[in-house]
């Protein structure tokens, strides 16, 4: 069982959380070209290694936050609040 440190509640089991996709993806202007829109919607880093991603403490305090997790070891390397740059 993976354990994740919620910024509010501390270390909890993975089943209290929901994954919300890759972090730091900005929506382009609506008059962007098809390529920019495709990148925004579909193209992802999907690394075998450290991945910046969004999670929500859905069965807890409900907060959304970012974390950096290693996709092979599942080690959570950093947890940080929404809106700040990747550490």
């Amino acid at each position: 069982m993976m354990r994740i440190a919620c910024p509010n509640c501390g270390l909890r089991d993975e089943r209290e959380f929901a994954y919300g996709g890759e972090a730091h993806i900005d929506r382009p202007e609506l008059d962007c070209d098809d390529q920019a829109w495709e990148e925004y919607l579909f193209l992802r880093a999907n690394p075998k290694g450290e991945h910046a991603e969004r999670w929500v403490h859905v069965h807890g305090c409900g907060v959304w936050f970012n974390l950096i997790r290693h996709t092979e070891t599942h080690e959570v390397v950093a947890v940080y609040v929404m809106g700040v740059a990747r550490p």
Binding site: M1, M2, E14, A18, Y19, N46, T71, E72, T73, H74
Partner: peptide
């Protein structure tokens, strides 16, 4: 499993 992974192991949940 509900999050990306290359662990080839599987989540207990």
């Amino acid at each position: 499993d509900p999050y990306p992974s290359f662990a080839q192991r599987g989540s207990a949940a």
